[in-house]
Design a protein around this nucleic acid. Structure first.
Lengths: 268, 268
DNA sequence: CGGGACGTTGACGGTCGTCAAAATTAGTGG
DNA sequence: CCACTAATTTTGACGACCGTCAACGTCCCG
């Protein structure tokens, strides 16, 4: 399976052509050139390891806005790293209610919830045209058997997902609308900032309804709360364009607007 | 606590205490005799594999009611399988609010949230005297490198935890108090039933306040809702002893009391 | 220009948080 | 065994917050 050279010669039949614009089918952007590597790959990897991983990533896949990368119940096979674009993941309860469980951006991974039952446990829908790296799980698993860093990295990613959801639960249980929306904005802008974007401006990729669904609020409440932030000059809101004017005030709202004294006392 | 010896010992988690009153090492119940094996181990294992795993589980550990198995922020080392007893896991937000992220019973595992940052991300507190199997992670990891079933099993467990939290989010976002409490009871009794207990009776190991915290409700609301269920003869409630009289009605409440039309197409 | 998706704003009412007090139980020491 | 305190649970009254219903404005696309 070792592929020593991925040089232009082997590509003579008109495959990769890394020189020019975008090539779809052939488009294997080498992982070691990917500027998102820090987000989805282990920190330190030998070039040899890196190319092993790179070879594993069979294809990339484009996902048009509004369409699903995978569906709840679909046979599980691969996990995905987002190269570009923005996703939501949502589950449907047996009785048909739908809950958005998270929003994912470039460098983040999706699909690990499919491992338990060999079926994806949620839909992953692109909120804007997107591109993902397809990572077949058995490939990853096999590779990780001889690559300790990779094995540990997989564990870390899943563990992180667990912790992330802890955070989401923290928000949903026992805070007011203001606090939820404030925390939501701060979280988004922080993740964007970690990817080189502004730490005060962002464009929402999702509708008010989707925000509300995620935060456990109705869309009208989301809208009203945005207006409130605007009136207080904490955030400038124009449709989906958000400008955080006073991030400290937002943080205060997160801190102060939790229901008071939820959990203290108690333990003996 | 009123024993002759000084208290710090029981509270201390520091050193692996060699020969105190309780001998940690001695009690090695062979995994292949453990009637909970089906819950925490892969389905099919050769006896050889099983004994490898068994050897890995260095110790068991007793946890007294009200004390913590591990604390948020503590250095991560092991995951734990519950042999007996009942736990809650709770995280504290930076601003000090506390959120219970789950209740765990015999056969379930805890600690995987510690992998990401090499620190436990939550407290695990025993709600009744308990006993756990200590499973050092690096041992598991090394073993799994040569034991494919185990490797896959670990992935499944973490994945299941992710999915479980999806479910919790589903409940916290967009349902009413009745629905949350009904779903909570049904979930508890179902898990207990899977362990050989009644499918209609249970004893709550946690206080009204803890239930409320978990469900995003105040303790008064929890109490009132219990009373409501009682008045409707759906559940007989006596303190913490719960008898489900009409499980179908409970299920109806879960289904019907979600906020209407949260996610589907809005035609009016 | 017209239709549809999305967002904003207003008015009203229900659910549940808040405050308060009483009831029941558990734990402790005499 | 019984008094005493602390913890937990229950119940009531009140009101804030947010869900509900409705109308309107905006933008996009055919």
């Amino acid at each position: 399976m070792n592929n020593g050279s991925t040089n232009p010669i082997s590509a003579g039949l008109g495959a990769p052509a890394p020189l020019l614009g975008i090539s779809f089918n052939s488009s294997k952007v080498a992982c070691n050139n990917c500027r998102l590597r820090a987000h989805c790959m282990p920190a330190s990897l030998s070039t040899h390891d890196l190319s092993s991983i790179h070879n594993l990533i069979g294809t990339r896949r484009r996902v048009m806005r509004g369409t699903a990368l995978f569906h709840q119940g679909e046979k599980f096979a691969s996990v995905y790293a987002i190269r570009s674009g923005f996703f939501k993941t949502c589950t449907a309860s047996p009785e048909g209610r739908e809950q958005i469980t998270g929003f994912q951006m470039a460098g983040e991974m999706m699909g690990f919830d499919g491992i338990v039952n060999d079926k994806y446990a949620c839909d992953a829908v692109a909120l804007e045209d997107a591109e993902v790296c397809v990572m077949p799980l058995d490939g990853l698993v096999n590779l990780s058997r001889n690559m300790k860093v990779l094995q540990h990295h997989m564990h870390r990613i899943m563990s992180r997902e667990i912790v992330r959801e802890h955070g989401a639960m923290l928000m949903l249980g026992g805070t007011r609308a203001r606090a939820r929306l404030a925390a939501f904005l701060l979280n988004l802008v922080q993740r964007l900032h970690a990817r080189g974007f502004s730490n005060s401006e962002l464009i929402l990729r999702m509708s008010r309804e989707e925000i509300g669904n995620y935060l456990g609020l109705k869309l009208e409440t989301v809208s009203r709360t945005f207006s409130m932030f605007g009136a207080a000059s904490i955030v400038a809101v124009q449709k989906r364009h958000i400008h955080i004017l006073n991030s400290a005030a937002l943080q205060d709202i997160v801190n102060q607007t939790a229901f008071p004294r939820a959990g203290s006392g108690g333990s003996h």
